[in-house]
Design a binder for these strands. Sequence first.
DNA 1: CAATATTTTCAGTATTAACTGAAAAGAGTG
DNA 2: CACTCTTTTCAGTTAATACTGAAAATATTG
Lengths: 175, 175
Amino acid sequence: MKLTPIMQKYILHWGEMGTRWGVNRTVAQIHALLYLSPEPLHAEEIAETLSVARSNVSTSIKELQSWGLIRVSHMMGDRRDHFESLKDLWEMFSVIMEERKRREIDPTLTMLRACELEGSNDHETPEEIKQRISDVREFMETISNYYEQMRQVPSPTLIKLIKLGSKVTGLLGKK
Amino acid sequence: MKLTPIMQKYILHWGEMGTRWGVNRTVAQIHALLYLSPEPLHAEEIAETLSVARSNVSTSIKELQSWGLIRVSHMMGDRRDHFESLKDLWEMFSVIMEERKRREIDPTLTMLRACELEGSNDHETPEEIKQRISDVREFMETISNYYEQMRQVPSPTLIKLIKLGSKVTGLLGKK
DNA sequence: CAATATTTTCAGTATTAACTGAAAAGAGTG
DNA sequence: CACTCTTTTCAGTTAATACTGAAAATATTG
């Protein structure tokens, strides 16, 4: 696949953004490429297009699959796996949120609860500090619950809500 | 400052979480330490407590200050700078959101708009691909505007809204 | 302003994370 | 089942990032 300057700019920027969010640059670039690509691409083609090793693509593809951001597809008469990205940005966003919650927020909540539990028979940690930890736990639970609730809302409704956000807050602001 | 096992667990976990979000481990640890600490700490003490070089603390402190997450304070009769973290988690959260927007979302929007502009007199990039880029731009603008709106809402109101989120969505869900 | 305390800078080093190329494993074909 | 095509694995290398210690800069005191 030949990249036009615009595509290059987009893909490179996405790679850099990735690193800022703890995502490996190649993984982010491949994701950007597949998002732009009108057709599913096979690993070899991805490697050539981005000038990275075939094996690097293999690993990165696995990573993207584990996030649920890309899917494998097949072409008649071609044995190679082809890959395509989710194209719906709202869906993509929600998949990423979901996965980050599962991988990062949930384990953090587990750790926080463990701290609280240990805290109950630990008299060397000052109460004030224990309280801080409980505050974090509570805060993260609140955010987490809120997210869980929003996830229930059918996405067209949620999208409308978000787009109309200004009106809602317009009212509230006047309070 | 002596760390109890609970504090250690908390600080170490926070450090690891940091790296997953593109934040340097030491920076995250210092932030966690200052968040827990009942009193402001000076750099020397931070370095000792976390077993890192004094100079590392200096750099990390600068980083945290640039994010607006910690403030310098002074003690009578002590020339050293002391540092304390924001303690209000909602405020902390909003400061981080704000800064990430400024550093990452806004530049990305700029890049996307530049792509669109270049796109108007580029006939080698397929329309479909240009459209994808526009979709991302639109998506990010929507999220960004929504965020901007929410930021206007006085925080006690926003907190109530988020805590009551379930009720709102309960209604919507039945639609 | 000399002496001391404190913070910052920065060149060099260490650590971690990412990537490559080659070899192994797996899958499909005739 | 031997051959070819494709994907995965992994040891070794490279690149990026983080960290240290010493020196320089800055600030404060008497």
